[in-house]
């Protein structure tokens, strides 16, 4: 394959993500095996007689030497087998299948809010530098960042749902409307089946969690886009474009904007991690039946096996995500491929 071609870049990038994946998985394994005792005793120790515990341990392979457990874990993870919880009859894979679409739907909706707010406010603030709008935008960014998500979510829930009855306060959809299961994303499923009441119910349930979560990350984007735009607007090629008589509008939106957004895309990838982390709070406040809430509940039950399975899945998702972001970057920026 030709060096510098997109295919070559893709291949190198995929090869590079293998060590990252292995190290992440190893970290997860080490972390979750660092605690003394075994997961079965930790979870069920006080509730089951010793012989049953021993049987469970044998069944889960916990009596094998640690390195065998390690290799088995890595092998299973790479096959997409995330193990079995101790406190739930479903497999972790099944739980993820049930809950991941809810989390993804929330996170993507929040990301859309964040990108819309962040890019428009950030770019405008940079263009109107040192005006009231710029200062207001900066302060808005700081304030949004400083507000704990669970607190603003709680206040929004209290005011917009309990007081004004504008939006539902919890859950993912009204109980009667659940659309036929195709992708697990209620928005997509209801559109595919033409089920408009279900779509309306889904969107109204999605609004509060997505906006509160999205604004939080949007605050980060506002700053980021502003700073990048300011730096780009000072660059030599912008100066040269102005010297050619290009209109200020074109200079800002054609020349500066695209260049300023490249680093933002990279950081957007990292912000997905922030979104997934903060989804634990959103899902808890809004009783959103997602994966982050499932993780919190399993941690509450001290179910090591389930926690390990879900965290492994998150690790895999992150590797895939960072790969995706880099690929998008390479598609936009011709310099990256070299």
């Amino acid at each position: 394959m030709k060096k510098g071609s997109f295919g070559h870049y893709l291949l190198m990038r995929v090869l590079l993500s293998i060590p990252m994946l292995l190290i992440l998985l190893t970290l997860v394994f080490v972390l979750l095996h660092a605690a003394p005792g075994d997961p079965v005793t930790a979870t069920l120790g006080s509730r089951l007689p010793p012989d049953q515990i021993a049987a469970r341990k044998e069944a889960l392979g916990l009596n094998d030497p640690i390195y065998i457990q390690y290799f088995r874990y890595i092998g299973h993870a790479l096959e997409g087998d995330f193990g079995h919880p101790i406190t739930d009859s479903r497999s972790v894979g099944q739980i993820i299948e049930d809950t991941a679409p809810a989390t993804l739907e929330l996170v993507i909706a929040a990301m859309i809010v964040a990108v819309l707010v962040g890019i428009s406010v950030g770019a405008l603030a940079a263009r109107l530098r040192d005006t009231a709008f710029d200062l207001g935008g900066r302060f808005f960014g700081i304030l949004i960042y400083a507000t704990p998500l669970f607190w603003s979510a709680l206040l929004a829930q209290l005011y917009l749902s309990a007081d004004l009855h504008w939006l539902p306060s919890s859950g993912r959809i009204g109980g009667f409307y659940v659309p036929e299961h195709i992708t697990g994303f209620y928005t997509i499923d209801s559109i595919l089946t033409g089920n408009w009441p279900a779509l309306w119910s889904t969107l109204s349930h999605l609004a509060l969690p997505a906006i509160t979560l999205g604004l939080l990350v949007g605050g980060v984007f506002v700053r980021l886009v502003r700073v990048n735009m300011l730096q780009t607007l000072r660059s030599d090629y912008i100066d040269a474009a102005r010297a050619r008589g290009i209109s200020e509008r074109s200079v800002v939106y054609r020349h500066a904007f695209k260049n300023a957004l490249i680093p933002v895309i990279t950081i957007m990838g990292l912000q997905f991690a922030l979104l997934i982390g903060n989804a634990t709070l959103s899902e808890t406040v809004f009783s959103w039946p997602g994966m982050a809430r499932a993780l919190v509940l399993f941690i509450g039950a001290r179910d090591y096996a389930a926690v390990q399975g879900i965290v492994t899945f998150i690790a895999l998702a992150i590797v895939v995500l960072s790969l995706l972001i880099d690929v998008i970057n390479a598609l936009i920026d011709p310099r990256v491929r070299y």
Binding site: L31, A35, A273, L295, V311
Partner: peptide
Amino acid sequence: VTVMDSVYAFPPLVLAIIISFILGAF
């Protein structure tokens, strides 16, 4: 470097929850 990059890419709040969960065993 790879370990640090991986930790950096991990959702920070989830990492904090897991660390405090594991520390809770000690």
